[in-house]
Design a protein around this nucleic acid. Sequence first.
RNA 1: GCUCCGGUGGUGUAGUCCGGUUAAGCAUUUCGCCCUCUCAAGGCGGAGAUCCCGGGUUCAAAUCCCGGCCGGAGCACCA
Length: 498
Amino acid sequence: MKKKEITSPPSGSQLPPLEGAEQGKVVTRFPPEPNGYPHIGHAKAAIIDEEYAKMYGGRLILRFDDTNPLKEKLEYYDAISEGLQWLGVKPDLIKNTSDDISLLHDYGRKLVELGGAYVCTCAQDRMRDLRAKGLPCDCRADHTTALDRLKGFFGTLYDQNQAVMRFKGDMSDQNTAMRDPTLFRIIEGDHPKLGGSVRIWPTYDFAAPIEDSVDGVTHAMRTKEYELRNALYFAILDRLGLRKPAMIEFSRLEFEGVPVSKRKLRPLIDNGTIKSWDDPRLPTLAAFKKRGFLPEAIRKFVLSLGITLAETKPPFETLEAFNRKIIDPISPRLFFVKDPVEVRVRGAREQEVTLKNHPTDASLGSRRVRAGDTFFIAGEDAVHLKVGDEIRLIELYNIKIAEVRNSGAPLVAEIGSDEIRQSMPKIQWTAKDDMIDYNVMIPKQLYIGDDYNTNSLEVAKGFAESYAATLKPDTHIQFVRFGFCRIDDGYTSIMSHR
RNA sequence: GCUCCGGUGGUGUAGUCCGGUUAAGCAUUUCGCCCUCUCAAGGCGGAGAUCCCGGGUUCAAAUCCCGGCCGGAGCACCA
């Protein structure tokens, strides 16, 4: 046996080669339903779709799969577009499934005329029962009135819930997706793009194959929960004599304790636990942005996952590691002291010191800090101090602890030696004369098991150098010995990761 | 219940289609050292997998076959 013939993509790509892909002829598509804010799961699909298109010099289509007016809203089209733009995913064509509504209707009619579908007026629960038992209903067998029913279906004969169009599959197929699934249903309601002009709407099962085929998609990708619908997808195209794209599945992307489903997230928003869809605890793209993750990190991470079918929750730490490496060289270093403890340094003279913004990259500049004789250090650092300890205030001077008092009274210290020993603790500090009240929001896992984590958002309170207030929102910084953060406003930042 | 899909170090993957060329590569994690006025980044090194289990085929199996176990998905007039 020989190895499968696969045109190798240009080197440098991280994804495995696409079967049957020809350079310059690959067309992929990302088909989100505009029914919510884009999240990390969307990012995975969109990035893989785009990456393959790029890899083969092909095209990417962004197709809003808007076939259910009850669920879709204009704001979500925009939210998805914005999310993709932030991610750096650039479609070559943007369209809506609803653009092709009459084409879809035509194919639906044609399918009935070809005997591949029928209008069914059975009640929903009766049909569910029949499908479970693998038995056909009377509508299916009624050939004589099939065309009249079809006419009535697209006319005004039926009201919502009175009729649907079903695929003529096999009611006894072991793959239940093939037991005459619904192709069209009647929905009264305003569609965000088409208003109330259309009432016969295709289901995903019908729209997806037709659109993919008609749009020239060569490689269609979707998450693995659709696997059993592949048979249906191809059966529809077969009966209609339409070209069949290749279908590739991959597992969903979700992190431990951070569900992506609206069922789990919506309630938190609705009951006010979480105020908006860009809350940094959420898996939405807006949240990742707010939290200080860079799109490049997300892309690298997604690509490192591969297109496996295994259902796993990848480690969030890996994403953090990618982000840290990208952010580290561009993040100014600043001082933030959490749970501050006051330190008086006897005999300290007032001075203005220059602090480097980055340990190795001088191009990030420096800042001036006014220091007197009163400082604050982090509570965590203070608890370990004993009389006689010598520590270094980073980039300032050494101090020697002279007095340790209980219950919140300031520590007293004196100026220490000039020697910067490798082993001595070097800690961040803020000067009383040059600091501001500061909060760092620290997002944690949203859910623990099935329960909302009531401690999912820690707010670290303390002092930061006043310089922090001068940084523009969205700036990435590192609070030394604390973690990487994104500036949210003058007195708040959001922690990205350590 | 029926059907389908997965199961490689703590974690995520590569390799599995075409059995041997590495008894398993990479990343993350973790430990040590170097560098360093950060517990960051960078450099070097180490740890960590009898490739779910049991049979079988074969000179040879993570890779093929059979059985089992565990996990997930689908069975909507949602996508």
